[in-house]
Simulated scan of single mutants.
Amino acid sequence: MKAIPQAIPEVLLLEPRVFGDERGFFYESFNHRQFEEAVGRSVSFVQDNHSRSVKNVLRGLHYQVQQPQGKLVRVVQGEVFDVAVDIRRSSPTFSQWVGAILSAKNKHQLWVPEGFAHGFVVLSETAEFLYKTTNYYAPEHERSIIWNDLDLAIEWPVDIKPSLSAKDSAGSAFRDAEVFD
């Protein structure tokens, strides 16, 4: 596995070694020891999630103010543009974002540490998205920042207004959002 720090160095793009031939492919999608070496600390995952979405669905920007979740995310069918926003007020990269294309074809994963808001938009006709989390889902602590916040100015690769849930449509502006210290 190759770990590539992004513009925000705590966010890592993980590229697995894929072995393929005319029969198909094989790769190790997760190795705890290699993952901890890449992130430089001990990490325990407690929950796996799987979502399926259609083209132009945008999910996010989500985070939990208590019980924060680190997320290791990947796509097993289709393609998404995945985004992590640093919402740690004390961080030198506070309010900055990084984005990456994750797809079944490239098999890349993104490590989004605790203290980040996370979201993605589906670029293919459908996409199946898997993510491991370091803490349990706690709806009472979940928050959402509006996807098109002017201060964040995320460059989503969509030509039309994405399809949003009611919760995501009601996301707060970044300047009004609860953030981490």
Rank of each mutant, 00 (worst) to 15 (best):
F35A: 08
E37W: 09
E37D: 14
A38Y: 10
A38D: 10
V39R: 07
V39A: 12
G40M: 12
G40W: 13
R41A: 13
R41I: 12
R41Q: 15
S42H: 15
S42Q: 15
S42T: 14
V43M: 13
V43I: 11
S44M: 14
S44D: 14
F45N: 12
V46R: 12
D48E: 15
N49M: 07
S51R: 06
S53Y: 02
V54H: 14
V54M: 11
K55T: 10
K55D: 07
K55P: 04
L58V: 05
R59Y: 11
R59S: 09
Y63A: 03
Q64D: 03
Q64R: 05
Q64E: 06
Q67E: 11
Q67L: 04
P68T: 03
P68M: 01
Q69I: 06
G70W: 06
K71C: 01
L72H: 14
L72G: 11
V73F: 04
V75C: 12
V76K: 11
V76A: 09
G78N: 04
D82K: 01
V83H: 03
V83P: 06
V83L: 06
A84Y: 04
A84D: 08
V85M: 00
V85F: 02
V85L: 06
V85K: 02
V85S: 01
D86E: 11
R89Y: 14
P92R: 03
P92G: 06
T93S: 10
T93R: 03
T93D: 06
F94I: 06
F94D: 13
S95N: 13
Q96E: 15
W97A: 05
W97I: 04
V98M: 05
V98N: 02
G99F: 04
G99L: 02
G99R: 00
G99N: 07
I101L: 07
S103F: 07
S103P: 02
A104Q: 15
K105Q: 15
K105I: 10
K105L: 13
N106W: 08
K107S: 09
H108G: 10
Q109P: 11
L110D: 02
W111Q: 09
P113G: 01
P113V: 01
P113K: 00
P113I: 00
G115Q: 03
F116T: 05
A117K: 01
G119E: 05
G119F: 00
G119S: 10
V121L: 04
V121N: 01
V121Y: 06
L123G: 02
E125S: 06
A127T: 01
A127S: 14
F129R: 10
F129K: 10
F129S: 03
F129G: 02
L130V: 13
Y131A: 01
K132L: 11
K132C: 12
K132F: 10
K132W: 14
T133Q: 10
T133P: 08
T134Y: 05
T134V: 05
T134W: 06
T134G: 01
Y136L: 15
Y136A: 09
